[in-house]
Amino acid sequence: MTDQYTTTALRDSRPQDGTAEPEIKVCVRGLLKQFPAKDRMVTALDSLDLDIPRGQFFMIVGPSGCGKTTLLRILAHLEQPTAGTVEVLRSTEGRPENSMVFQGDSIFPWMTVWDNASYGLRMRGAPAAEIKETVGHYLDKTGLTAFADCYPHQLSGGMRQRVSIARAFANDPDVLLMDEPFSALDEQNKTLLQSELLRIWDETRKTVIFITHSVDEAVTLGDRIMIMTSRPGRAKAFVDVPFERPRDVLELRHRPEYGEIVYDIWQHLRDEVNNAQVTAPQSQQRRWFRR
């Protein structure tokens, strides 16, 4: 195990069109993010470099408060980096750069399931026929068709998360950003949604950046896993996951490699989690500024 950036050959999950090297879809260089705290600056992210090839299911694990959400919010243009660059290789015009599945409840309580799922397409003025087809497709894939006219309060937590996922997929972005989408769910729902997510993802194999605090989830879903240090968040190690696609979420678990990789990641994480315990208390609560 090394703390270094392991430059293993990256398996590309999508048939290459001529080029031998997979294209880099998301490129992050020297990313620094500081927040003003009471009397000084809190550094959430520090000198972070990332290269994520197109079509990769990229996982980020790290102790809580290490800056995972901050990284995703910068990628989503919801925060500005203090220093450093973020580049996303764009595909066809008209397609949004990214769509986020937010941490916690984020679907609009005042919209029906259908209106929530079609939100992105409606906001960018997609033609009605396209909206109908795309949203219909993803509601079908997430098992929500029968609930299209329901309001979020009528749904269970798992179903609300499905709406959030359908909303992001239906928006058809270049890159999908997912911030602990399943962390509030119980174990059975989580496993169910993980395998549903993989099924849906398999249709398009979009580049995904997925945050989790669950090591199992990282190994189950990801092609590559970045382990972050406790705050300030840096890349501590990268681990490649060798499992083929499509995957069977349950079957994976009794493979010998599965346990090895999980153990591997825990080795990296152990010190960081301990560190986070010591440094966490100060200014954990987020300050929101109104626009």
Binding site: A76, L78, P96, S99, M100, G104, F108, Y119, G120, M123
Partner: peptide
């Protein structure tokens, strides 16, 4: 968070207001 969602999904000023 709802304003973040609106922004992330490309809602412009008037649409943020309306939705």
């Amino acid at each position: 968070i709802y304003y973040d969602v609106a922004k992330n999904f490309g809602a412009k000023r008037m649409k943020v207001f309306r939705t």
